[in-house]
Simulated scan of single mutants.
Amino acid sequence: MSYYKEDLNLINKNSLSQQKSTFKAWIFGRDREERSQVINALKQEQWPIVTIQSLDYFESLASQLSPDILILCSDIMSTFGNQLIRELRKKGITFPILCIGKILQAENCIIALEEGADDYLHSPLNKREFVSRARRAAKLTNRSHTTPANTDNNAKYTICNLQFYPETKNLESKSGQHVSLTKGEVNLLLLLCENKGVTISRQRLASLTETESSNSRTIDVRISKLKKKITLLDPNETYITSKRHEGYHFTSDTQAIQEIK
């Protein structure tokens, strides 16, 4: 595209002058009104911004550069957003992704979280909340391109009959069978491991795993999918149970959880 080199120069220039409190943001969306709302919010924070409207342009950028955060607008999420997230995570590309979805697309955004997105918000956006969530995602999960081969394989948890490897996002049975976990599932499992025997509310789980706290259904969906993966490896044990109106906890037979370094 004719503006590609100019945008690359702009990104590199902004990278050099970037202040500590700002982050490079890529905004992928074709809806002018929503895109403008996102741009204006981040410009007030003096974040370097690149706007993307085509998949070809995105792939060209991603092959050479990496943002501090990628923001997928609702029109992208309603078409190929989840597929894009899945492909990025399969390639080991781990920069933070924040999704924006219409209220009617709530289920679509929940799927996005399972595919590896870091957070999502409903449109129309509350500017203050949006900036806060974007900044938090960029701060807490800002990483360059990495692959699973570069991670530390030493840290693990023993959970009854299973081995849990947070760094490689793997859960393994004694027989050697294993399943891959999403980032959201890893965060949930870690939190439950570190609070064994304690019932944690959905709101607390949402807050501590960087999920929209007002949507407890997101946590229910994640827990349900996590339990299904655990059952594939060990169908005879109950690891996670729910308490009505309270939250989730590990059952008493998981007290042998221990971290091994």
Rank of each mutant, 00 (worst) to 15 (best):
R204C: 03
I159M: 00
V38P: 04
I200R: 07
T209P: 08
L88P: 06
D152M: 05
G81H: 09
H249M: 04
K156D: 02
Q46W: 09
L181Y: 11
D119S: 04
L208F: 13
H178T: 12
G247W: 07
K43G: 01
L72R: 03
F250W: 04
F28L: 02
T251H: 05
I11M: 11
N215T: 12
I103N: 06
I27P: 09
E210H: 15
K156Y: 15
K174Q: 11
Y120R: 01
R30W: 07
A256H: 13
L125W: 14
L70C: 01
Y157R: 00
K90M: 11
A117L: 06
R135H: 12
L191C: 01
G247K: 04
E212D: 07
L98Y: 14
L88Q: 12
N40E: 14
L72V: 10
T94W: 14
D56G: 04
K196W: 03
I93A: 04
C160K: 14
F23V: 06
I240M: 02
I49F: 11
Q18D: 03
T254E: 01
S78L: 03
A134C: 08
D118S: 02
I93H: 12
D119G: 02
Y57G: 00
T146D: 02
N150D: 10
Q255L: 07
S180G: 07
L188A: 00
S242Y: 07
L188V: 15
T211G: 01
F164E: 00
